[in-house]
Simulated assay, not measured.
Amino acid sequence: MTYNINDMGYYGEFGGAYIPEMLYPNVEELRSRYIAILEEPSFQQEFGQLLKEYVGRPTPLYFAKRFSEKYNTKIYLKREDLCHTGAHKINNTIGQILMAKRLKKTRIIAETGAGQHGVATATVCALMGMECIVYMGAIDIRRQAPNVARMKMLGARVIPATSGSKTLKDATNEAIRDWINNPVDTHYIIGSVVGPHPYPDMVARFQSVISQEIKQQLLEKEGRETPNYVVACVGGGSNAAGAYYEYLDNTQVGLIAVEAAGKGIDTGESAATSVLGKIGIIHGSKTLLMQTSDGQITEPYSISAGLDYPGVGPMHAHLFASGRGEFISITDDEAMLAGRELSELEGIIPAIETSHALAIFKQRSFKKEDVVVVNLSGRGDKDLATYIDYFNLK
């Protein structure tokens, strides 16, 4: 059994392209050409060079000594927080802007939740001299003000989404509307492993550099390419997809996906899709989705803007449904305490998204000799206001 995508654009029963007819030409052009473009030597060379010289890859695999001692296991942190722009998102936007250029697109649109993908998109548009429009929920604009300022500084237009919960789902809806209205000159850079095929696969491929590096770095540090576990937080799930990618079909490696339980799974204020989700269609793909009994999307909630999504990418839905992935839900409070703990033990302030992944060590034990790699997907600068309020650090 494979946990990768099949020729029809599905992971098991999840995936596909459920799109309005007006979007078909855009998506079909991408689907029919993305693999050939990805495999062009000139594309590979330009992508690799930008990852190295612009993004700053490879990112370190850091042995967290004091954190490991506390939890009595070997914990390595994959330092995606050290990428240019402060998170893994830039890996994908570099890949997609090169794809857009080869498709002769001149205008870029994107959606963003925590703002990291918006910043990464604005960054590559500035790099390549392309027009950039970013859709962002009005609530997220308020709680991620530093990232909004960064996008504007980079020359992007940030357009608030004022419908629904005014968060990531609604920003995505607005971006899709824009794309329908501007099919010829516009490329939509989706920021996660969500959306219609080929996006989940394309984004996962661009992020797979994370697990390619983990293999190489573990070989140097531990004499083997495989950890016992790879741990990552999951909203849409691109950082997790990148960290898992090289290990998907190696069942010796445990894949642990950490979701946001918000104020508690049963409180009605949560984003724990694996527990609360049912099969449905969102933003062009069939996946697990939090919804009411009559199929209306349930508004998600998390203290972390990047995990505040009512669904999960189809790769992760399949990992959950097949039992290949182990899913753990972490509350706001547990995540915030874990973020502070890493800061005090290792001198690294993590993004609140990553803090969810770090929180599992309080509730799940590992063997002393286990090698556990946690994808530290972003840095905490963008979340300082939330940390300040929560811990009353004023």
Rank of each mutant, 00 (worst) to 15 (best):
Y3F: 15
N6A: 08
D7A: 08
G12V: 12
F14C: 11
F14S: 04
Y18H: 15
I19N: 00
I19M: 02
L23N: 06
E29T: 05
R31P: 00
Y34F: 13
L38C: 06
Q45E: 10
G56V: 02
L61P: 01
L77N: 11
C83V: 02
G86K: 10
G86I: 08
H88I: 03
H88E: 04
N92P: 03
I94W: 09
I97E: 10
K101W: 00
K104Y: 10
C125T: 08
M128A: 15
M128P: 00
M128R: 06
G129L: 09
M130R: 13
M130V: 13
Y135R: 06
A138N: 07
I141H: 04
R143H: 11
V148A: 00
A149W: 10
R150F: 02
R150M: 07
R150T: 14
G155H: 01
A156V: 13
V158F: 11
S163T: 06
S165L: 06
T167P: 13
T167H: 05
D178E: 15
V184G: 11
I189P: 00
I190L: 14
G191H: 06
G195P: 06
P196K: 02
P196C: 11
H197L: 01
H197Q: 07
P198V: 01
Y199W: 08
Y199D: 08
Y199K: 03
V203Y: 08
R205M: 08
Q207L: 00
Q207N: 11
I210Q: 10
S211E: 12
E213Y: 04
L218P: 05
E220F: 07
K221D: 13
T226V: 07
Y229N: 10
Y229E: 11
V230H: 04
A232M: 10
V234Q: 01
G237T: 12
N239I: 00
N239H: 10
A243Y: 07
Y244M: 14
L248M: 06
N250D: 11
N250M: 03
I256P: 04
A261H: 12
G264V: 11
G264A: 14
D266K: 12
E269S: 13
A272S: 13
S274T: 08
L276D: 08
G277I: 06
I282Y: 01
S285E: 12
K286A: 02
T287K: 01
L288D: 00
M290E: 05
E299Y: 11
P300M: 01
S304D: 05
D308W: 03
D308Q: 09
G313N: 02
G313V: 09
G313P: 09
L319R: 12
L319Y: 11
F320K: 06
G323K: 09
R324S: 12
G325N: 05
E326T: 11
I328H: 04
E334M: 01
A335K: 01
A335S: 10
L342K: 03
S343E: 03
E344Y: 03
P350N: 15
A351L: 10
E353N: 10
E353Y: 03
S355Y: 14
A357W: 01
R364Q: 12
R379A: 06
G380H: 12
G380I: 01
I388A: 09
D389A: 12
D389P: 04
F391G: 00
L393W: 15
